[in-house]
Design a binder for these strands. Structure first.
Lengths: 113, 113
DNA sequence: GGATAACAAGTAGCGTGTCTACGCATGAAC
DNA sequence: GTTCATGCGTAGACACGCTACTTGTTATCC
């Protein structure tokens, strides 16, 4: 599964992983991969531009830090970003329940757990 | 909600509405609108090209019929289309459950106490 | 010491897919 | 005879993610 299917939901995913705490780009990619059991394996060429978009939109702020001589740009959610995430969440719910009507009951309201 | 968010799932929706029986383009649009409580209101410029894509792919076949002097092109699911729909369905389930982990109700830091 | 891999960030150009904005045609209402 | 709802269709614009590439550091293997 690649990000083509995401189309328009990628930003929401990025905000969602940052909700748990600030991360740098590479770590975001790994978090997405880990939390999706390897299903979301996004290329850097997808994630980095998206993060810059989010920063331009004011949803995240970034800060450079150097660790072992390696440059890391760490991204953090802003208040605006938090509100945007809430919006995206309700948008996702409406979207998935609407499409779910046509494509099956598998909207997974809750993964049984 | 428009089809921008659909991106990649539109074909599946079209196949899904045709699953219940053959329809012509305009009726497909109305069926989508009706079954989604008005949430899916797709422009013709989105649906007609999509239907032609599906026909080129062999997922549907079309036939002209004239009703009251009006030309209608009625689309019908093929066996290939039915299989494709099944594929899309399982694809949708995987997609929605994966994204749902991040954006779903169970994702909030307030785990339904 | 040199090659390779993993980590870390980024850009350029392409392809796909939906949207906007049209055009064409018929039948009913006013 | 103009307007509206029905019905089909295309052209071009635009947004977004993908592929492929570049730059640079640290660690590992031979």
């Amino acid at each position: 599964m690649n990000a083509q299917a995401l189309h328009g939901h990628l930003d929401a995913l990025l905000l969602a992983v940052l909700e748990r705490g600030a991360l740098h780009g590479y770590a975001i990619i790994e978090a997405l991969r880990a939390r999706s059991d390897g299903r979301l394996d996004l290329p850097t060429g997808t994630v980095y531009p998206a993060l810059r978009r989010l920063e331009r939109a004011g949803h995240v702020v970034s800060a450079w830090s150097t660790v072992n001589g390696r440059e890391r740009r760490t991204y953090e959610l802003t208040d605006t970003g938090r509100r945007a995430l809430a919006d995206q969440r309700s948008g996702w719910r409406e979207f998935s329940s609407t499409v779910g009507r046509f494509l099956g009951p598998g909207t997974t309201p809750n993964p049984a757990g």
